[in-house]
């Protein structure tokens, strides 16, 4: 007799547990306000990334086309993957001294793992992360970027 009771109890407990699950899912079905999907390319305009978001490494320039990079190469040493390559040149300053400056600050986005060591170790805070995250390109060579803008100069007062 007890086994028969057990048999029916199992059935009802089973059905009850199934109904509990269905209550949750049908509850979501009837509450469209809880939809979490973002319509990504359509909401590009009002999509705001967090301020610390690691998009890609850039070298901020001010309005006079000046950057802070002295070409010391610390970022290059600290990069674990050889993402950064600093090509420096020697320039003659106004007062006739010879000085080292960057020619090209090459950043290979395809190799970057976003460990942030370059940004953190830069002694003159010349590097930063941008919010840009749409990196897909059709040609791999486009992933090799030059961080300093053409014709840019070292900011005054930074050694």
């Amino acid at each position: 007799m007890s086994s028969i009771i057990q048999y029916f109890r199992e059935i009802f407990q089973g059905i009850w547990s199934l109904l509990k699950g269905m209550r949750v899912t049908s509850g979501y079905f009837f509450s469209p306000g809880k939809i979490v999907t973002q319509k990504y390319p359509n909401n590009r305009k009002d999509l705001v990334m967090f301020e610390r978001f690691k998009g890609e490494v850039i070298m901020p320039h001010n309005e006079n086309n000046e950057h802070k990079c002295t070409g010391c190469g610390i970022c290059e040493i600290n990069c674990p993957n050889g993402t950064i390559e600093v090509i420096s040149k020697t320039i003659v300053t106004e007062d006739g001294k010879k000085k080292r400056a960057i020619d090209k600050h090459i950043y290979r986005l395809g190799m970057c793992t976003f460990c942030a060591l370059c940004v953190k170790t830069c002694p003159s805070n010349a590097l930063a992360f941008s919010q840009e995250f749409e990196h897909a390109v059709f040609n791999r060579s486009l992933l090799i970027k030059i961080s300093n803008k053409p014709g840019s100069q070292l900011m005054k007062g930074i050694e």
């Binding site: 407990q13 547990s17 199934l18 699950g21």
Partner: peptide, 13 residues
């Protein structure tokens, strides 16, 4: 809700 959907579900157990 996790429990209702999966943990307690008779098929899952």
């Amino acid at each position: 809700e996790y429990d209702a959907i999966l943990t307690g579900n008779v098929i899952f157990t």
